[in-house]
């Protein structure tokens, strides 16, 4: 019974059936479904082959298919650009406003997010060193830190904007508040990562605290530190953009999104989203690259 079912290729038959039904119902739907099923067929075939090249092409084909379907759906169903602009329209908006987008990028990402990220993560690592030396702080600060890390800290944005004004300082402060606790928890965890045996070995070498820290504990903490640094990249961008909703000078990604939504210039809004996405993946990718350079010895980096 079971084997009889398996001998019939269910999925291709179902796909053709869906196509035929959709063709009778609506030709536009037929076109979209045809693109989807065609791409899926190619991807299934490619995945069955395997290999490193396939691992790159399959997701690329999948992403491109989504874009084509998006474009097709917007054009065929004449969706209003206010609701959902086509990818081509977004690309045009992006190309037309590169100066504006670059200015926003510098204001929000480089001045706000990056400054807060460096200050927040740096401070968290320093505090983690202090926490590591005191059992009392470990017992006291860690539960509080873990609790605070789960809270909607982005809500402090209006307070910081009120205190520090509309400039990048308030954005950086929000970012500091957002990245501090996740980074702290990871850094403390990392400083505990060296084994008792390894620490004893350093002790038998009569290594000082500083030597043991630089030569053993910080290197073993690096995978944890990078985990925290990677989580914090996204948090930093979110903090900087959201803080601009509460007040900003007339430049910045959050400001532009707010204004452009008000004017219903959705192409520009989506172009800003593209910039945010690129900045986010770029920032994260940079950290991954650094991690690979510095923690090449860790099992997770082996290939």
């Amino acid at each position: 019974m079971n084997s009889a079912f398996r001998s019939i290729p269910i999925l291709p038959v179902a796909a053709v059936a869906i196509l035929v039904v959709a063709g009778f119902y609506d030709l536009r739907l037929w076109a979209i479904l045809a693109v989807w099923l065609g791409a899926w067929f190619v991807n299934t075939r490619l995945s069955a082959m395997g290999g490193p090249v396939v691992a790159i092409w399959v997701p690329v084909i999948f992403g491109a298919t989504l874009l084509v379907i998006w474009e097709l759906a917007v054009r065929l169903y004449e969706i209003s650009p206010v609701i959902l602009p086509a990818p081509s329209a977004i690309a045009v908006a992006f190309a037309e406003n590169t100066d504006l987008l670059w200015a926003d990028f510098v204001q929000t990402i480089l001045k706000g997010a990056l400054m807060g990220y460096v200050i927040g993560c740096g401070a968290a690592v320093l505090v983690a060193l202090a926490v590591d030396r005191s059992l009392f702080l470990q017992k006291g600060l860690l539960p509080v830190g873990a609790f605070l890390a789960a809270l909607p800290i982005v809500g402090t944005a209006p307070i910081f904007v009120m205190w520090l004004g509309f400039g990048p300082a308030s954005k950086a402060a929000v970012v500091v508040a957002m990245v501090f606790f996740p980074m702290l928890v990871n850094a403390v965890e990392g400083l505990k990562a060296s084994s008792a045996m390894q620490r004893d070995l350093m002790h038998t070498y009569a290594a000082s605290y500083g030597q043991s820290l630089m030569k053993l504990r910080l290197p073993t903490a690096l995978p944890f530190l990078f985990n925290g640094l990677k989580i914090c990249t996204t948090l930093a961008l979110i903090g900087a953009i959201v803080a601009e909703f509460f007040g900003s000078p007339t430049v910045g990604m959050g400001f532009r999104i707010k204004i452009a939504v008000g004017r219903l210039e959705m192409g520009l809004v989506w172009a800003e989203i593209v910039v945010a996405a690129l900045a986010g993946t770029g920032f994260y990718g940079l950290m991954t690259l650094l991690e690979r350079q510095l923690t090449f010895w860790h099992p997770s980096q082996r290939r």
């Binding site: 206010v82 609701i83 959902l84 982005v154 990249t233 996204t234 961008l237 979110i238 953009i241 959201v242 909703f245 990604m253 959050g254 999104i257 707010k258 939504v261 959705m266 809004v269 989203i273 945010a276 996405a277 900045a279 986010g280 993946t281 920032f283 994260y284 990718g285």
Partner: peptide, 16 residues
């Protein structure tokens, strides 16, 4: 998608 600050663009979805 986890590296993209999706949260920051949430309001747009609401407006749309």
């Amino acid at each position: 998608s986890q590296t993209i600050p999706i949260l920051a663009v949430a309001p747009i979805v609401i407006v749309v």
